[in-house]
């Protein structure tokens, strides 16, 4: 299985975009070596602004650069970007509907050893609730490149969540990312697993496990969390009659909630939401934390079995 770092791909893609367009500027808040915006900084020092440890100022400055016609990409760790500067994102980016691209690395609990203060299990909820905001979490490095290229063309506030560890590659190079459209990686007839980020890989493995038991599970990569692909959800309900969602985020307010908003109102069906329970993170190795928070494929398979009993 090939492994790719979503943040590494982001850093390289930014450099390519920087070569293609003079208009792109990049801002960071003293984490450039971790978010990989340092690649851009090395090649384009005059278009890179390290704002220091000042996330609110980071967002305000990006808003000003966008007002002046620049295309700002803004990076920090997910909880510092979405959390520390949430109200600045609301007032100075989303209300004026400015073309600012927020690309957060270190999402979820796979941040690992740094513990609760640095984990981010709330960012989908925080960003999804803002009018005008688009929210995306790519499944792997291949999709990350396509997402970053696509959002550079798309107008409006955008939040992209990437990760610290390398992810298994689940998509091939021919894959075309379409903003707001999900992608079915595996067909099935008994239930549909709708996942985002690293959980796409975990769901694919869970589907293999279930297959051994004669359960046929579809797997859908829902990388755009907002606007959610409601037609795809409705069609999944029609075809399989049961929906399991999976995300490296709190079970409150994230992908599961977004899907439930569609299912409960448009096409009622039994659902199971896999995610981080209503708890803060703890320190530990990323892989161990995935199991600790019951996000790995055996727990997903178990969730699917429970779900099928309610069908």
């Amino acid at each position: 299985m090939d492994m790719l770092g979503t943040r590494d791909v982001y850093g390289k893609t930014l450099v390519e975009l920087g070569r293609e367009s003079e208009n792109i500027v990049v801002l960071d808040a003293d984490l450039a070596s971790s978010t990989r915006t340092n690649y851009f900084a090395r090649e384009f020092p005059h278009r890179f602004f390290n704002m220091g440890v000042s996330e609110q100022d980071l967002i305000g400055t990006a808003a000003g650069l966008a007002l002046a016609g620049k295309l700002p990409f803004v990076s920090s760790f997910a909880i510092f970007l979405a959390g520390k500067a949430w109200e600045q994102i609301r007032q100075s980016i989303c209300i004026p509907n400015l073309n600012v691209k927020l690309v957060a690395t270190h999402g979820g609990i796979t941040v690992g050893e740094d513990g609760a203060s640095h984990h981010s299990t709330e960012d989908f909820a925080l960003m999804r609730v803002l009018p005008n905001m688009t929210v995306i979490c790519p499944a792997d490095g291949v999709e990350t490149e396509k997402v970053i290229r696509e959002i550079a063309k798309h107008q409006g506030p955008t939040y992209v969540r990437l990760a610290r560890p390398k992810f298994p590659v689940v998509l091939d190079d021919a894959y075309q990312f379409q903003l707001g459209r999900s992608f079915t990686l595996r067909q099935g007839k008994d239930l549909t697993m709708i996942a985002t980020g690293i959980m796409v890989y975990q769901c694919l493995r869970a589907a293999e496990e279930l297959d051994k038991e004669g359960v046929s599970a579809a797997v859908v990569n829902m990388s755009t969390i907002k606007p959610i692909d409601a037609p795809a959800i409705a069609s999944a309900v029609r075809q399989t009659g049961a929906i399991l969602t999976a995300e490296e985020h709190s079970v409150i307010g994230g992908l599961g909630s977004a899907v439930a908003e569609v299912v409960s109102q448009n096409c009622p069906a039994p659902m199971k939401i896999i995610g981080v329970d209503d708890l803060f993170g703890v320190s530990g190795n990323a892989d161990k934390l995935m199991a600790h928070f019951r996000l790995t494929y055996p727990y997903i398979a178990e969730g699917a079995r429970q779900l099928l009993k309610r069908k």
Binding site: V25, I59, G60, T61, A62, A63, G64, L65, L67, K70
Partner: peptide, 13 residues
């Protein structure tokens, strides 16, 4: 609290 940062962004551009 936000106007000075925004002004900085425009001045930087």
């Amino acid at each position: 609290g936000q106007g000075l940062s925004i002004g900085n962004g425009v001045a930087l551009a």
